[in-house]
């Protein structure tokens, strides 16, 4: 009795989600250009970081939700979700490079190497790049299903790094409620996969 979608409905859904995922960015832009923010840079840095994490969680939730509900069409939305993770992660990185270091790459490297909290965020971002690059059908074919899948399991490294980055950022003020929440959700989503792998169904997505 799982919900099925026609190709047309799926196309619509994709379009709607594509626009929805741009709304956080649109909000940042509107609030900034209308001068409603005292410190837009802080707002944008936080906003892009938050949305990277939200979208990462959504992306990783697709497979478990699909298996629990039987809504197999959800898999068709995963690439877009994943690319949005990269998109907001890229904006987050650019904010750091632009506003913190004014494109002084040498200065940026110093920061990346010196501060563990930035180091892990940076590694997480760099690891996203090969995933974004190999997200096309063509690349998938060229790599072959197995190799592609193994490469994309990098997300299981990226997600904990992202949470650790967030954790360290909040730790100075002991505001760990949100990092714990994300840690638990992402841990649960990863455990779900582990369970799937150890159980009789060997498919891992």
């Amino acid at each position: 009795m799982a919900l099925q979608l026609t190709a047309r409905q799926l196309g619509w859904l994709k379009g709607v989600l594509f626009v929805l995922a741009l709304l956080p960015l649109a909000r940042m832009v509107v609030l900034t250009v209308t001068g409603q923010l005292v410190e837009p840079l802080e707002f944008i840095t936080r906003g892009t970081g938050d949305w990277t994490l939200y979208l990462l969680t959504i992306t990783l939730a697709i497979t478990p939700v699909r298996r629990l509900t039987g809504w197999n069409w959800l898999i068709k939305l995963r690439r877009m979700a994943g690319l949005y993770v990269f998109f907001y992660g890229l904006l987050h990185f650019l904010t750091f490079l632009w506003f913190d270091h004014f494109f002084d790459v040498q200065e940026m490297w110093k920061d990346v190497l010196k501060r563990p909290f930035i180091t892990v965020g940076f590694i997480a971002f760099v690891l996203l790049i090969p995933l974004a690059v190999t997200s096309t059908n063509g690349m998938m074919r060229r790599l072959g299903g197995k190799a592609w899948q193994r490469l994309h399991q990098l997300i299981y490294v990226i997600a904990p790094l992202a949470v650790l980055h967030f954790w360290w950022m909040k730790a100075g003020k002991h505001l760990l409620g949100q990092p714990i929440l994300f840690g638990v959700i992402l841990g649960g989503l990863l455990l779900f996969r582990l369970k799937g792998k150890l159980g009789k169904a060997p498919r891992l997505a």
Binding site: V38, E39, P40, L41, W98, F99, D100, F102, D111, K114, R115, F117, I118, W168, M169, G172
Partner: peptide, 23 residues
């Protein structure tokens, strides 16, 4: 003397230093 999580070498002046300004 840096804060452990960021440098203290520069600052942004609220309301004055905009997007195109180096700190």
């Amino acid at each position: 003397v840096d804060h452990p999580r960021w440098s203290q070498a520069s600052e942004r002046r609220i309301g004055e230093d905009g997007f195109l300004a180096r700190k």
